[in-house]
């Protein structure tokens, strides 16, 4: 697959390079059948696909939680291998779907500090990193709150901050808009747009993908079934139908002006 939408100079190493990735779970269920995907630095890409398409399996390969199948994954040129795990996990920031899983420390501040502290950061540098990350998601004044006393939207934003604090090469979001009310959804979109990092967004929320990601890939039955401009893909009705992707009632992707 050619990296025709990579931004920046041609010499830049892409943030993410997945080559021929295949994986079967120990119970024999094969989830990925040779996935190729390249995401250039600074790109925002949506990973679309029906339930059971292998999206989560692919995401868990990006930081080496799953592995041992065929194919390679490289993050900013660094192969995902056991000896690089510490660095890989700093470079790949995964925001999981349920913020209650992501936020496991007693206060917001400690949770955001967890990643950088695990990487060895201490003292004033750590404080500074936490403050910056929380400011980028507009949650600085909630630093000393316990996470379970925040609203769902606030928890999702803090979850984004927890990975931003690690200054990742690529931000991977698993269903970022799920369970958010429209206002929280828009706030999160504003935050994501303002970030200067590569984003891979796993989602069913097609309007959200159109709003945020110029490029989309469709993962279906363990392979990349399509890769192109989000608007083009969403307007391709046979493709959408073939992969169980449906637009919300009354939404016409043609009618939306995107950058």
């Amino acid at each position: 697959m050619t990296d025709d939408r990579a931004t920046g100079p041609a010499t830049a190493t892409p943030s993410l390079e997945v080559c021929g990735l295949a994986y079967a779970y120990p119970d024999g269920h094969q989830a990925l059948f040779g996935v190729d995907l390249t995401v250039g630095r600074g790109e925002r890409v949506a990973l679309l696909g029906p339930n059971g398409a292998g999206k989560t399996t692919l995401v868990l390969h990006l930081n080496g939680i799953l592995g041992g199948g065929v194919g390679t994954v490289k993050v900013a040129g660094l192969p995902v291998e056991k000896r690089h795990f510490a660095e890989i996990r700093r470079r790949v920031g995964i925001v999981f779907q349920d913020p209650d899983d992501q936020l496991f420390m007693p206060t917001v501040r400690e949770d955001v500090a967890f990643g950088p502290a695990a990487a060895g950061l201490r003292g004033a540098a750590l404080e500074e990193r936490v403050r910056t990350a929380l400011e980028r998601v507009g949650m600085a004044e909630y630093a000393d709150r316990p996470p379970h006393h925040l609203s769902f939207g606030q928890r999702r934003r803090v979850a984004v901050a927890t990975v931003l604090a690690m200054e990742p090469e690529i931000l991977v979001l698993d269903e970022p808009s799920s369970n958010l009310d429209p206002a929280s959804r828009r706030e999160l979109a504003d935050i994501l747009r303002a970030l200067d990092v590569t984003v891979l967004m796993v989602t069913h929320d097609l309007p959200y993908a159109l709003e945020l990601c110029p490029r989309s890939v469709v993962l279906s039955e363990g392979v990349i079934a399509a890769d192109g401009r989000t608007q083009d893909l969403l307007c391709d009705e046979p493709l959408m139908r073939a992969h169980r992707l449906e637009l919300p009632f009354g939404f016409d992707p043609r009618s939306v002006a995107v950058a």
């Binding site: 999981f96 967890f114 502290a117 695990a118």
Partner: peptide
């Protein structure tokens, strides 16, 4: 799932010292 989230953020078995 929490364990997965911890491993993803560089947890290797010991809690980092924050305070």
């Amino acid at each position: 799932r929490v364990h997965l989230a911890m491993v993803s953020r560089g947890w290797t078995g010991v809690m980092p010292v924050i305070d």
